[in-house]
Structures are given as structure tokens and as C-alpha cells.
Design a protein around this nucleic acid. Structure first.
Length: 945
RNA sequence: GCAGGCGUGGUGGAAUUGGUAGACACGCUAGAUUUAGGAUCUAGUGCCGCAAGGUGUGUGAGUUCGAGUCUCUCCGCCUGCACCA
């Protein structure tokens, strides 16, 4: 029987499905193992060979753990809300649910062809109402919670109400909006219902706020910071502008410190941890209050709060700079400066985020005419505005210390402001002195002569005493915008009451399903697409969605028109897999009590500051409220690298229809044009007939080849349809089989690394699989033949060596080297013509994670009735590996000269004696006595002469 | 600018963590077989050299009996953040 992968693979895929081979047990007495890969967004393009890389690695590990006796949970699902399906709906009118359904069917087909051991009975889809009711449920719990700083955790909002009743908000140390006023218990009791709700909104973990957001006009929606890359949208690359809008926000900043601390507990890649640390951006310093000096135009004094990481340089502060958007600017600007300030603010607001970032060199600003009192000296310092100060960071205002900060220095130079030097023995003629360590402060009253740390402490003490500042920790992390002006997302379970305040729907009314709409675009009045729905109002008496026309704000109220962002659905999906059918809870206590958390999570590093941060935040919240037992949901995470495409480029003589083979293009003026990689063979030779068929425009073009052949150039870049470099896994499965594809993807290189795809290399692993098959099938007809004889010692050694190495490699996620180990093993067994069942049978189990179809086939040919997936993993025995002697490399002064066979159980001293007595050694030494002999048992002998 | 990472044959990549560098595979060369092959098998393949031998892990130094591996310098590349006070 020849190795017929097509027949084998489809047969066993069917068998696994029919026998539910990979269903996870629950309840179970076995130890659990939860292996997870980030679920895909089902795009219209289907999978390319890059996508399954992480899935294959995860599947290998899951199968390995299953052999080791673990009850493995390896689920798969779809992150099926998202922009592309909606953009497609806008263009074609096709409901996104239909597009999504079709895409999922295609994904499923492709995934099934690769032989993954998923428990498909646990599939989740974020766009399925039975799933997203739990996304809505988490949102409601966040709405009904506040963050207690004292306890360091989230608590139910009723507890906060109780505290306000008895002691106002002075008694509470809670995370809240910056503009929250102080109120007493009697103030609280005096508030009417609406005011109380308004106040609570300042404390809720999800809240409405007028926020400066990233607005993308092209997409018609706001974007989160992590969805904006270099000032343009991550999806589509459209320009993004700043805009003030009322939006749902997530108070993730309450968790900033815990999100940092948690990183120490988990085994995640360092670069990813660094990215999160950076994004959270903790900096220790002080907040300082500068009071504006009243003048003829402004009798009132305002507090300008600034944040600084260098309180020690406070005596060098010679002016202040506010962000142009700072709220005090309008109030403190003097009439004389009004025109200049107004013009400047207008000029900055006209600039897009991108322009502002691109041009960091130009110094610009304007004087407000106001002065503020230096908190320690009382001296008046001028208050300026400048766009180098960002409204979104710290307080949006800085104390400018030109001698210690280059930006302040440049600003001062440009506008001729004073630059006092407060550093001992340092020149600031050319630039600011930004070195932090080893500075000695001078000209600074009571801190002169001190170093940075001592000075910082004293300054903070002095500020606190005066009530003009305190030591604080500032985070770069902002609260996350949670509203999207889109159709294809989770609706908020929220309506607006007679006072226009947000109210939650009763929990038993979930899910609040997406309404049908005629158009998926924003309405003519600029409302989000849900505004197009005619049935989108909430009747509080009937507890049902009703026609908009009935909105009377007595019993029928408007529903929220925004939808949730993409990351909402992916922030708890890993817990939902544990109990996907549950309609009473996101996950039952029993299920999460058993499965607890993800043992292995594999996914791309592009989610570092998006999904992987938000999901940690939600998990911590769930933990605080007692719904999940673990504060971190993924103990180990691996970032798989990207598989890149190898684009094929042909050269066209500029301005002509003449195309040149690669070697002829050097001297010419040419344009590079991408062609389909499928038309190019392993030697970079282009199939011209195929090309003309692919794009008829080339039919009449002239092609100049080299020796009758036309060669293309290669370029490694991201795999994408538009670059014609996409390789489809279906085609590879067709030609080489799923097992070959699985092994090759692993063989390509280290899992974490990005690497280019090269179909030509597949012949290596394909040949290996055929050789493996031939170990079990003899003769020209390949008849199955395995003997029950006593295996040769050398073959047993090969087997146990392979078990040891492959096991170690899997545990270290070095899948590429384990494939090499298999290849060496097969080469050795082929050379010795091994036919012994005792050697071959364990190998079938060993290779099952990598080539499950072939393993299953061989396992059954070996006479077993059960699936090989259930078989115990082979354990290597040391006794087969021990050697009695070894070739020692003998080196002189570190330079290898010859080898010498020596017994392994020889003592250091005996080895030394034996080596020195050796004829070759004496020749090398030529009569001299060696200074020293270094012997590492089993390894090496070095003679120093 | 800040943070992190990387640099090994023509190519993808190994190297028991300080102990014979280049495993394994692609590609290439030669040969065998076949009507033919992008099939199969055998041998070779870091570089220089006919050979003996020399040389070799981006550069230069250092530690060590011994360095791809550890330390420092410089060069180059990649990733994330970036006017973050």
C-alpha cells in the first residue's frame, strides 16, 4: 500500500468527527489542560498558510498533553463582529450576519482539512446572541461596580450608595472622574434621583464622558488608541482626527497598577510584557499647584496643576506651558493676548494628529498674558500655551524647566525666555542637561548641594506642607473608549431615562439583539447606524424592544445607538469555552472551578496593547467580584511569528510593454511589477503562458528572457491578496497533505520568529513522511510488514534517543528541532532496515501530534481498534542510551588535535593518565611536560603546555 | 529619543547553555536508474588550497585551558512606544 495521504486524511478526519474523539470531559477526575489559540476574525479571504502556524503548534501541544493523560480542552471559535463584514454590508446591502456565516463555513472547512483536535461542541461566535448576552452582562456588571482604592478591588455600586448615605464621598477612597466635587452625607441625601445618578456615573467602572477621541471620518467611528497607528486607522489606513464626543468609557486606569503587578506572575514573552509596561507608562513624581496671579482683568486666582517627574528641578522652573486645549486657557488669557492665543489654538486644532506628530521640530506657542506664582519662591512666572504639551497626558500642563528638559529649553530659546541654571558645574550653553544621575542641585534655596533623590524628597515635603503639591504616580494609560458608531457589534443593554441618564435593561431581558436596519451607514442626522432601526426603543412596562415612534419618555425610552468595540467580545471568551451552552451564567462555578485558567495561550504579538490588555482588565474585574478564581487568565503565552510571503517581481522597461528577465534588468530603467507567486517555480522561473492566462493584458507584451527562460526577482513581505503572494493551505493539502503542511510549518523555523514561506522546501518533510511510511511497508508494492522480533540494540537506542529529544523539544516549544529529530530517526532506522514492532509502535504515538492522520492509519494497521490519540505517551529509558565509551576530543591549548576512545566510567585521574600515556599525545608534547590537564568527564580533554 | 531583540554557509536554520560550529532540510555538483520527469537512490557541498594545512559565527578588544554562547566598544538590521513633562 502506497502512502495515499488524501485517502488517509479524509478517512480519519471523518472517524474523529464520528467518534467525538476530541471531546473534553466534564466532569472529570483527570488533571485538566487548557490549550488555547486566539480565535480568528473570519475574513472573506479565507485562511492562508500563515494563519495555521499558531494553531498547529497549539494542537501539537494539546495532543501531547492528551497522550500524557490530561483531560485537554482545546476549543475554537470566531471573533465574528468586525469592520470588514460591515463595510461589505454598506457596499452591497448584504446583512453582515450572512457574510459572516458564509466566511465561517469556509474557515471551518479549511480548519477541518488540517486535522486539528478541537472540541467543536464548544465553539463560540461573538456575534451570536447567546454568546453576546454575556458580553452585555459583563458590561452591566461593570456599570454596577466602583473601584475601592482602599480595598484595592471593584465592589458593587450599592455599597457605594450605602457609604454616600452615611458619610458622603469624603469617607470613600474611590477611583472617579477628576471633576467630582466633594459632598457630605446630607448633601447626598439632598440630591434628587437624577443628581444621585449623575454622581454615581462618575464612579462606575464604565461611564459616559465627554471625551477627546480619535475620530475617523472615513470609517465614521471613533477608534481606541491601540487602533490608531501613526495617526491613521489600523484598518484601512484612513486619517484620524481629535474630536470631543460623549462616549462610553472603561475605567481601566483603576487597574493600571494591578495590570503592571500581574505581569510578574505570568509566563509571557518579555517583549510583550515590555510593550504593556510601556503602554501603561507608570512614572513617579509629584503633582504641583501653581496659583495664577490676579491682575486687572482677572481678579480670580486659578489653580494650575502640573505633573513633574523632576520635583528636584522646581527652582529652575521659569515659566509654565499649558496644552492649547487646556480648560483654563480661555479664562486666564488677558485681553491683549486674546487674539494671538485664539489664532494659535485655531492653527493647532486644524492640524491633524499626524501632522502634529510628523513635525516635532518646529517650536510654536503663544503667551497668555497671565502669570502664576511659583509654589516655593512665590515669584511670578509667565504662563504660555504650546502644542508640545499634550492635553491627554498628566494634567495637560507643565512647569517648564528649560535647563533640565530639552523641549522646555527649545521653547525658551525660541521665545527668549530666561534659562536659569540650577545644576552644579554643568554648562547649559548648548542644550539642556537631561542626565538624572549624579547631578548636584544649585541655586535652589534649601535643596542646593543635594543630589536628585534627597532634593526630590525635600521638595515634596515642602509642597505638602504648603498644601501646594504631593508625591504622585502618573500613568500614561488612558481610560478606554468603549463606544463605536457602527452596526455590527454588541448593542449596549442601555436606555436613556426621562432625564437623559443611562439606565440598564433588566438582566432577564438579555440578550438585547441587534435590530434590523435598512442601511448600515450613519443616519442623515449623523447618528450611528442603529439610528436607522425603526424598532429600537425600550418599553419599561412591557420590558421589550418596541417601535421608535412610541418614544414618550414616560414608559418608552430611546435605546443606546452605539455598539461595543471589537475587543468586548474577546475579553471573556476564554472563560465561556469552559461552559459554552450555559444560559444561567457566563460560566458555571463548577466548570470554572475545574478548568480554572488557560494553561497555554498562543497568538500574535500585535494584540499586546489591545486584546491582551483589555482581557486582563476584565478578568481582574471578574476576579474582584468573585466570578472567576484566577486574577490572570493565561499562565503561559507564546507569540507565534508571522509567516511572510515571498512576492515575485518582474521588471518592465519604464514606459514600454517590454519585460526583462531578472538578470537583464540591472542596467535598465525599470519598474517592478508583482506577479502571482503560483506562476513561478522553485528556480524563480516564470510560466509565461500561465501569466498571459492569469492577466490577459500581458498577451501582447514582449518578454525578454535569458537562455529562453524568464526569471523573476523575489521580495519578502506580508502575505496579502493585493501582493499576489498568498499561498493557500488547501492547495498544499491537495498536493502534499495536511500532515506534510503541519510538519513543514513547524520545520520552517522557531515558532516565535517571523519567516518567509517557501513552498519548495516542503519536499523535505514530504519525503520524510514517505520514508516513515516505508518503515512499515515493505517491497515494491509496499505491503504492510512489521515483525514481532527482538529489536537490535542500535534500533532501541535510536528509538529512546528520539523519544527523549522530541519530548524535551515539545516541552520547550522547539517544534522545528523536533521535526529534525524525527528525520534523523527515520534515516537511522531505514539504514538498519528496522522492522520491529517494539521500535516502530512507540514511534507512531510519538509522531501523532505532528502527523495525526498518518499516525492514526498506522496505528490501526498495527491492529489497534482505539484512536492513537488516547494512547499513553512513550517514556524513554535511560538504559538504552548509556554508552560504555566515547570519542574524546583531545585538544592542546584549546585547539583540537585528535580523538581518542575512552570508557565513560573512567575517573578524571585515570583519563588524564591514559591520555598522557598515549603515543599521539607524546608526539604533540615532544618531550615537554604539560602545565595542566583539564578533563571534563564525557566531554573533552584539554592539555595546556 | 526611550525600551526590547537580533546578527552563524548560496537559503531556512541547529549547537546538550562555556566544551569537536554549521545538525536537519532546501538548493547546488557529480553519478546510478528510468522513454521521460519537478520520481527514486548514492556521493559531495563554510571559505582558501591539488594536497598537507590554514581559516572561519557583523567589527574590535577582554575574561577563560577553551567563547557562536559571558563582559565592554563600534557597525548594521528588526520590533514596540514616541513632544509622556
Amino acid at each position: 500500500m502506497q502512502y495515499n495521504f488524501k485517502e488517509i486524511e479524509s478517512r480519519w478526519q471523518q472517524y474523529w468527527a464520528d467518534n467525538h474523539t476530541f471531546h473534553s470531559e466534564f466532569p472529570s477526575d483527570k488533571p485538566k489542560f487548557y490549550a488555547l489559540t486566539m480565535f480568528p476574525y473570519p475574513s472573506g479571504a479565507g485562511l492562508h498558510v500563515g494563519h495555521p502556524l499558531g494553531y498547529i503548534a497549539c494542537d501539537i501541544y494539546a495532543r501531547f498533553k492528551r497522550h500524557q493523560g490530561y483531560n485537554v480542552l482545546q476549543p475554537m471559535g470566531y471573533d465574528s463582529f468586525g469592520l470588514p463584514a460591515e463595510q461589505y454590508a454598506i457596499q452591497t446591502g448584504q446583512h453582515p450576519a450572512i457574510t459572516t456565516e458564509a466566511n465561517i463555513a469556509r474557515y471551518r472547512e479549511q480548519l477541518d482539512a488540517l486535522g486539528f483536535s478541537y472540541d467543536w461542541s464548544r465553539e463560540v461566535r461573538t456575534s451570536n446572541p447567546r454568546y453576546y448576552r454575556w458580553t452585555q452582562w459583563v458590561f452591566m456588571q461593570l456599570f454596577d461596580s466602583w473601584y475601592d482604592r482602599e480595598a484595592g478591588k471593584a465592589r458593587p455600586i450599592e455599597e457605594l450608595v450605602d457609604r454616600f448615605e452615611s458619610g458622603g464621598n469624603a469617607a470613600v477612597d474611590a477611583v472617579c472622574d477628576a471633576d467630582t466635587p466633594d459632598f457630605s452625607a446630607s448633601d447626598w441625601q439632598g440630591f434628587d434621583q437624577a443628581d444621585q445618578q449623575r454622581m454615581l456615573l462618575k464612579y462606575r467602572l464604565t461611564y459616559l464622558a465627554e471625551a477627546e477621541v480619535n475620530w475617523c471620518p472615513e470609517l465614521g467611528t471613533v477608534l481606541a488608541n491601540d487602533e490608531v497607528v501613526n495617526g491613521v486607522s489600523e484598518r484601512g489606513g484612513f486619517p484620524v482626527v481629535r474630536k470631543k464626543m460623549t462616549q462610553w468609557m472603561m475605567r481601566i486606569t483603576a487597574y493600571a497598577q494591578r495590570l503592571l503587578d500581574g505581569l510578574d506572575e505570568i509566563d509571557w514573552p518579555q517583549p510583550l510584557k515590555d510593550a504593556q509596561t510601556n503602554w501603561i507608562g507608570r512614572s513617579v513624581g509629584a503633582s504641583v499647584i501653581f496659583k495664577t496671579v490676579p491682575n486687572a482683568h482677572q481678579a480670580e486666582s486659578f489653580d494650575i496643576e502640573v505633573f513633574t517627574t523632576r520635583p528636584d528641578t522646581i527652582f529652575g522652573a521659569s515659566f509654565m506651558t499649558l496644552a492649547p486645549e487646556h480648560e483654563l486657557v480661555a479664562r486666564i488669557t488677558t485681553p491683549g493676548q486674546q487674539e494671538e492665543v485664539r489664532a494659535y489654538i485655531e492653527a493647532t486644532s486644524r492640524r491633524s494628529e499626524r501632522d502634529r506628530m510628523a513635525d516635532v521640530k518646529t517650536v510654536s506657542g503663544a503667551f497668555t498674558g497671565a502669570y502664576a506664582a511659583h509654589p516655593l519662591t512665590g515669584e511670578p512666572v509667565p504662563v504660555w500655551i504650546g502644542d508640545y504639551v499634550l492635553a491627554g497626558y498628566g494634567t495637560g500642563a507643565v512647569m517648564s524647566v528649560p535647563c533640565g528638559d530639552q523641549r522646555d529649553y527649545d521653547f525658551a530659546k525660541h521665545f527668549g525666555l530666561p534659562i536659569p541654571n540650577i545644576f552644579e558645574g554643568v554648562s547649559i550653553e548648548e542644550a539642556a542637561y537631561e542626565e538624572k544621575d549624579g547631578v548636584v542641585i544649585a541655586q535652589s534655596d534649601f535643596i542646593s548641594g543635594l543630589g536628585r533623590e534627597a532634593a526630590t524628597r525635600k521638595v515634596i515635603d515642602a509642597l505638602e506642607e504648603k498644601g501646594l503639591g504631593k508625591g504622585t504616580i502618573n500613568y500614561r494609560l488612558r481610560d478606554a473608549v468603549f463606544s463605536r458608531q457602527r452596526y455590527w457589534g454588541e448593542p449596549f443593554p442601555v436606555y436613556y431615562d426621562a432625564d437623559g441618564l443611562p439606565r440598564l435593561l433588566p438582566e432577564h431581558c438579555l440578550p438585547l439583539e441587534l435590530p434590523e436596519v435598512e442601511k448600515y451607514l450613519p443616519t442623515e442626522t449623523g447618528e450611528p447606524p442603529l439610528g436607522n432601526a425603526t424598532r429600537w426603543a425600550w418599553d419599561t412596562e412591557r420590558e421589550a424592544v418596541v417601535e421608535n415612534t412610541r418614544i414618550d419618555r414616560k414608559t418608552v425610552f430611546p435605546l443606546e445607538l452605539n455598539t461595543m468595540p471589537g475587543w468586548a467580545g474577546s475579553s471573556q471568551y476564554f472563560n465561556r469555552y469552559m461552559d459554552p451552552g450555559n444560559d444561567q451564567a457566563l460560566v458555571s462555578e463548577e466548570a470554572i472551578g475545574y478548568w480554572e485558567d488557560v494553561d497555554l495561550y498562543i497568538g500574535g504579538s500585535e494584540h499586546a496593547t489591545g486584546h491582551l490588555l483589555y482581557s486582563r482588565f476584565w478578568q481582574k474585574f471578574m476576579y474582584d467580584r468573585g466570578w472567576v478564581p484566577k486574577e490572570e487568565y493565561a499562565q503561559k503565552l507564546i507569540n507565534q511569528g508571522m509567516i511572510l510571503g515571498t512576492s515575485a517581481l518582474m521588471y518592465r522597461k519604464s514606459g514600454t510593454q517590454t519585460y526583462l528577465s531578472k538578470g537583464l534588468a540591472e542596467q535598465e530603467n525599470v519598474d517592478a511589477i508583482r506577479v502571482d507567486v503560483g506562476l513561478v517555480n522553485a528556480s524563480d522561473e516564470l510560466d509565461l503562458a500561465g501569466l498571459k492566462e492569469w492577466q490577459p493584458q500581458y498577451a501582447d507584451a514582449e518578454f525578454v528572457g535569458e537562455d529562453g527562460k524568464f526569471y523573476v526577482a523575489r521580495d519578502v513581505e506580508k502575505m496579502s491578496k493585493s501582493k499576489y503572494n498568498v499561498v493557500n493551505p488547501d492547495d498544499i493539502c491537495e498536493e502534499y497533505g495536511a500532515d506534510a503542511l503541519r510538519m513543514y510549518e513547524m520545520f520552517l523555523g522557531p515558532l516565535e520568529q517571523s519567516k518567509p514561506w517557501n513552498t519548495a522546501g516542503l519536499s523535505g518533510v514530504y519525503g520524510f513522511l514517505k520514508k516513515f511510511w516505508r518503515l512499515f511497508h515493505q517491497g515494491p508494492d509496499r505491503t504492510f510488514e512489521v515483525l514481532d522480533d527482538t529489536p537490535a540494540a542500535a534500533d532501541l537506542k535510536t528509538l529512546h534517543k528520539t523519544i527523549k529529544k522530541v519530548t524535551e523539544d515539545i516541552e520547550a516549544f522547539s517544534f522545528n528541532t523536533s521535526v529534525s529529530t524525527f528525520m534523523i530517526c527515520v534515516n537511522e532506522l531505514t539504514a538498519s532496515n528496522c522492522r520491529s514492532r517494539a521500535v516502530l509502535e512507540p514511534l507512531v504515538v510519538l509522531i501523532e501530534p505532528y502527523a495525526p492522520h498518518m499516525a492514526e492509519e498506522l496505528w490501526h494497521q498495527l491492529g489497534h481498534g482505539e484512536s492513537v490519540a488516547r494512547e499513553a505517551y512513550p517514556v524513554y529509558e535511560e538504559k538504552y542510551l548509556v554508552e560504555s565509551s566515547k570519542e574524546y576530543p583531545i585538544s592542546f591549548n584549546g585547539k583540537m588535535r585528535f580523538t581518542m576512545e575512552l570508557p565513560l566510567d573512567m575517573s578524571k585521574e585515570d583519563i588524564e593518565k591514559a591520555v598522557l600515556a598515549n603515543e599521539k599525545t607524546r608526539q604533540q608534547l615532544a618531550g615537554r611536560t604539560p602545565k595542566k590537564v583539564i578533563v571534563v568527564p564525557g566531554k573533552i580533554v584539554n592539555i595546556v603546555g
